[in-house]
């Protein structure tokens, strides 16, 4: 590149591709490490879905056979996958915009996107952990799953965290500092309820049933149900909705980040 020859130490200035890749890896490693060491993040995201599933899916569903436990495995997996996306992105972005860390990262020669990519990998890892935890608990209730079904649920969770990363990122650009968790809970909990993750949709009022396809968590739940062998819908539609939702919120968030930092 021509412009590089203007550099004061022309000749040994190019960043080798290996080092650029190393920077991405270092960023992802740091993101994972810092959250693994933050009990305030890891505890709620594993404890709530794990506890709820244990109480409602394993202990209380005993009389209803393994179908209830199987159904709730999908629902609580969806519920559990939403939070690392929403909170991992939303809370940290709101705090880091406020605390100046994002400004510092933008001033430093961090490779583009490494910051968001690192958070994304962290959220996917946390989602995988939650799904594995629920899969383990489901064995107490004797839910019989083939290896393929378990793997499908895991993959659904790991990829299904992405639309919620996008939504969390967008919310993180709207609120600043300590306001993040409150706003995110206001989105997270009602959305989980309205998508039928706590009570199956047929138990909810008709209006809410009809409204459910508005929420991304509804579509992820359908995919999770299919993964454990309980879905009867065509999957492509749900995948497309989630994909569109992800792209839309990433674009919205990126626009706000560019404008307001």
């Amino acid at each position: 590149m021509n412009t590089l020859s203007l550099d004061p130490t022309a000749g040994n200035d190019a960043m080798p591709a290996g080092r650029v890749l190393g920077a991405y890896l270092a960023e992802a490693r740091s993101e994972c490490l810092r959250y693994l060491r933050a009990p305030g993040f890891m505890l709620p995201i594993t404890l709530f879905p794990g506890m709820f599933y244990l109480v409602f899916g394993v202990l209380m569903a005993r009389g209803e056979g393994t179908d209830a436990a199987r159904y709730l495995l999908a629902s609580y997996a969806t519920f559990g996958v939403m939070s690392p996306g929403l909170f991992g992105f939303g809370v940290s972005l709101a705090l880091e915009r406020d605390g100046g860390l994002l400004t510092l990262k933008r001033a430093l020669p961090m490779p583009p996107g490494a910051y968001l990519l690192g958070k994304m990998l962290m959220a996917m890892g946390a989602a995988a952990f939650v799904v594995l935890l629920l899969l383990g608990l489901s064995q107490i209730a004797h839910v019989s799953l083939s290896l393929a079904q378990a793997a499908a649920l895991l993959a659904t969770g790991v990829l299904g965290v992405l639309p919620f990363c996008a939504l969390g990122m967008f919310i993180g650009t709207l609120v600043k500092g300590q306001g993040g968790p409150g706003v995110l809970n206001l989105v997270y909990l009602p959305m989980a309820f309205l998508s039928g993750l706590w009570f199956p949709l047929p138990m909810l009022p008709k209006v809410l049933q009809q409204l459910a396809p508005v929420w991304p968590s509804y579509h992820l739940d359908r995919l999770a149900l299919a993964a454990v062998g309980m879905g009867h819908d065509a999957l492509a539609g749900h995948v497309l909705v989630l994909l569109g939702f992800t792209v839309a919120f990433v674009l919205l968030a990126a626009r706000r980040l560019r404008r307001y930092g």
């Binding site: 270092a26 880091e96 860390l101 510092l104 020669p109």
Partner: peptide, 30 residues
């Protein structure tokens, strides 16, 4: 890639160790 920056205020990740922060930041440079 030729600059170093110390801003007036920046809250760095509190759970990361100094060694890890240094390694991460150094990884951005050639």
């Amino acid at each position: 890639r030729w600059i170093g920056v110390m801003l007036q205020s920046a809250t760095l990740p509190p759970t990361l160790r100094v060694r890890e922060l240094l390694r991460l930041t150094a990884s951005y440079y050639a």
